[in-house]
């Protein structure tokens, strides 16, 4: 068992190094080769939006911790594109995270990007929300920080669907794991309404998911035994509707449901494997 873990760790670290080097190599050489072909995209494109949203969310419940959040909140989004680079950032209580990408291959109907982003919600002894008091059931656990995963995304369109697959390694985070993501989106244009349905799945390597929901020896107590989380998957469904209220103003509303595979609740710090979000609000697009 010890030997297998060591081999896995070495393999994961080697994969991280290979991924990083490969991405640097591809980005560098594709920048040179594509530079002349994409002169029309040399201009800097940017878009910021500021809005207020009501959000009601329930995260996968950690034992003893508050996993429900319901309040109005501010939302700040930024989209920046320059040459083949793009940056999408979201702040607020339900969006969250950023996507930094570089378009390596751009073809009709498909493309390949190098991507950097976060896929997992951080938490600590207080649960998901930092302003909460320490939760007795979580006391003594180490902080689980955001992953910062680097990898490739392959996009393709088929009929009315847009599908993306992503393979990323937590190169800059602490998990030493990897994650495979798949999702497909169907967009419905109903007069000026834009309604999209997104169905997705994630497959987390044991190292990745264990960093969040496993219990290390130095965290174990009489009530919280040591635990290793094996490879895990999750499924989710998202529905969002957007409507242009006026020039620069957009109304959005959406709902999402999410579920981990059943064994996640065997972790001593996980109480439920479901999560859901509802939101509605308006934003001003600059």
């Amino acid at each position: 068992m010890q030997g297998r873990m060591t081999i896995n760790t070495v393999l994961t670290k080697t994969m991280k190094k290979i991924t990083t080097l490969l991405l640097c190599y591809i980005c560098f050489f594709s920048t040179i080769s594509y530079a002349d072909e994409h002169l029309e995209k040399d201009e800097l494109l940017w878009q910021f939006s500021l809005g207020t949203f009501w959000v009601d969310s329930t995260m996968t419940q950690l034992v003893g911790a508050n996993s429900h959040f319901s309040a109005p909140g501010l939302l700040i989004d930024a989209k920046i594109e320059y040459k083949n680079f793009y940056l999408n950032t979201h702040s607020g209580d339900f969006y969250g995270g950023s996507d930094l990408g570089y378009q390596l291959v751009i073809e009709d109907g498909w493309g390949i990007d190098a991507i950097l982003g976060s896929y997992q919600q951080p938490f600590n002894e207080s649960g998901y929300y930092e302003n909460e008091d320490q939760v007795p059931e979580l006391a003594g656990i180490k902080e689980r920080e955001h992953d910062l995963s680097l990898g490739f995304a392959y996009y393709f369109n088929h009929g009315e669907f847009q599908t993306v697959t992503e393979l990323v390694f937590d190169v800059f985070g602490d998990s030493d794991g990897w994650l495979f993501h798949f999702d497909t989106t169907r967009n419905f244009e109903l007069r000026n309404w834009d309604v999209w349905l997104n169905i997705g799945a994630n497959y987390y390597s044991s190292a990745f998911i264990d960093y969040y929901y496993g219990i290390d020896a130095d965290e174990a107590t009489a009530f919280r035994p040591e635990y290793v989380v094996s490879n895990t998957s999750s499924l989710y469904l998202q529905l969002q509707a957007d409507y242009p209220i006026a020039e620069n103003w957009v109304f959005s509303a959406g709902a999402s449901g999410f579920i981990y595979s059943s064994h996640i609740v065997e972790s001593p710090i996980v109480h439920s494997r479901h999560a859901r979000v509802f939101f509605a609000g308006v934003k001003y697009v600059f």
Binding site: L45, W46, Q47, S57, M59, T60, K79, E81, Y86, N88, H90, F94, Y95, G96, G97, D99, G101, G117, S118, Y119, Q120, Q121, Q162, V164, D183, T185, N187, W196, N198, G200, S234, Y236, Q238, Q240, P244, E247, N248, W249, V250, G254, S256, F258, A275, V277, V285
Partner: peptide, 15 residues
């Protein structure tokens, strides 16, 4: 039109 840049991704990073 409202958006100058079309969203590349149609999903949220909630979880």
């Amino acid at each position: 039109w409202v958006h100058k840049i079309k969203s590349k991704k149609r999903r949220w990073r909630i979880f």
